[in-house]
Amino acid sequence: MPRMLSYGAALAEALMQEMERDPAVYLIGQGVNSPWYVGNSTKGILERFGPERVIDTPVAENAETGIAIGSAMCGMKPVVIHPRMDFCLLALEQIVSQAANWSYMFDGQVSVPVCIRPIINRGGEQAAQHSQALHAHYAHIPGLKVVMPATARDAKGLLIAAIRDPNPVVFIDDRWLYAVEGDVPEEPFAEEIGVAKVLREGKDLSIVAVSYLVQESLKAADQLAAQGISAEVLDVRTVRPLDERTILESLARTGRMVVADSGWSMCGVSAEIAALAAGPGFGYLRAPVERVTLPPCPAPMCKPHEEAYFPRARHVVAAALRVAGVKAARPT
């Protein structure tokens, strides 16, 4: 019997079980007690563990993150929530220069087991400063691991792994995925960080997708199947470390690749994956790689522009048809 749980509820369950298991785990961030900020992803945690381990902070991203990092160096295992990735920009110094570097800079004498959760929360006519998907920033940095679950099961299994990991892990969940349901085991379990997964097998082309675009790509694969095209859908799951082997194996099977990522293409995660195809995967390629990403502009505001701006299944379908050599109208 599958046990269906939503992505948001799976996050809350992971947190609940890890806090139960390890008294060093605590939750800190703006809105961890708020009825609206973090969806249902911290539901019930405050009631269970109280304000000592569920710390709602003043509006001070840099310090609240630095405080968590300092406590992580001294035996705690904080989970820091930034209800929007846009606000986490104020904490980048602590994450990038500090947390990511300490292990290396002191030759392994210190570890920073912090889990940072900047949530992507876009759309809804919120305009440019409340819509950004900036995961590539973190993926650029040696010393950080970057996890982006696309399914309810992974929301739980990868969050548990991120909390247990002795390194700083940036765990990026996406509000567009919170309602997605899936079969999620009730007992605690940790997925391995750095392993991609083929969610749907296919032989004509590989769609290598990140985060919510995995869900969109599964829909796209259905639509492609209706047109006689068999698309493999690969969920990247962690963008750093990137599971190059699984991606290349898929490319070896199909010879064609679409990369779907919710960030911009310039220096983005999609560029890294395309570089993989252009390098070690070159011999497998039978067509140029296509990328589905944001247009090269900030997020617009009004509905019709948002509709055109954020990539959806239809954009993936169009890219797949181009890669497959099928002529089709560009998405409107």
Partner: peptide, 17 residues
Amino acid sequence: LLGKATGCARGRGGSMH
């Protein structure tokens, strides 16, 4: 507020911009 081209931010900002 309605995201229209005649808005003060020409429909690029909404209430917050």
